[in-house]
Computed example of a mutant assay.
Amino acid sequence: MIPADSVLKAFSSFGFGMLFSGLHFGGLWMTLRVLPYCRRPRLFFWASYLGRIAVTLWGFALVMEYGGPAWMVSFVGFYLMRAYLLSRVSGAGMCDFLTMKRMTWK
């Protein structure tokens, strides 16, 4: 039987990976929406990029304290959330992103 602690750790790591992905790509979406209206777009872009990367890496470092398997489950959650968000934005199905099929954007 699998210990309850391992299952809880896996589910929470997966959820944190999805959260990190939502923050990272949600921040990217907001950056691209606000960028045309900024007075200093280059500074805004790089500040947003470095902030998003820092938060994402910090989150993965926190998960890494629970071991490699927790980090891998977190990364799977990050990737699946990314695929879901891309499928919602592009209008393609999520299976097209997971199988890497060539698609046309709407």
Rank of each mutant, 00 (worst) to 15 (best):
R40S: 09
R33V: 09
L35R: 02
L28K: 02
E65V: 01
A61M: 09
V34L: 11
D96G: 01
R88C: 08
R52C: 12
G59L: 07
G91D: 09
M30A: 14
G26L: 12
F11S: 11
V73K: 01
V63L: 03
G77E: 00
A92M: 12
C95M: 13
M100I: 11
S87Q: 02
R52I: 12
W71P: 00
A92P: 02
D96C: 07
G67P: 00
M100W: 15
M100Y: 15
L32V: 08
G22R: 01
G59W: 00
A83I: 06
L32S: 07
D96K: 09
V76K: 00
K101W: 06
G68C: 05
F75L: 15
C38F: 11
L80V: 12
M94N: 01
S13Y: 03
G67I: 02
P41D: 04
W58G: 10
P41T: 04
V55P: 02
V89E: 12
S74Y: 02
G91H: 08
V76H: 02
F14A: 11
W58I: 09
V89M: 11
L43G: 02
M94L: 14
C38V: 03
D96Y: 09
D96I: 11
L86T: 02
L32E: 11
F20E: 01
L62G: 02
M72T: 11
L57C: 07
W29Q: 10
V73E: 04
F75D: 06
F45V: 11
G17D: 03
W29K: 14
R42V: 14
E65F: 10
F45T: 07
S87V: 03
I53N: 14
F45Q: 01
T56Q: 09
Y37V: 04
R82T: 14
M81H: 01
G17R: 00
M81F: 07
K101R: 15
G77H: 01
F14N: 00
F16Q: 13
L23D: 00
I53S: 12
G17Q: 07
G67K: 00
R82E: 07
A54H: 04
M64E: 12
S13K: 03
S74A: 15
L80N: 01
G67H: 06
L62S: 05
L19S: 06
W71H: 06
Y37C: 01
I53W: 13
C95Y: 08
F11C: 10
S74E: 00
V55A: 15
S90P: 02
A61R: 09
Y37M: 06
I53Y: 13
P69C: 03
A61W: 15
F20A: 13
R40N: 14
S48C: 14
L23V: 13
L85W: 05
Y79V: 13
R39K: 14
P41H: 05
G15V: 04
H24Y: 14
D96W: 02
T99K: 14
L98N: 08
V34S: 04
G93H: 10
F14W: 08
K101L: 12
M94Q: 10
M100K: 15
F45N: 04
A83E: 09
F45W: 13
Y37K: 05
F97C: 07
L50F: 15
F75Q: 02
W29G: 05
F11Y: 02
T56R: 03
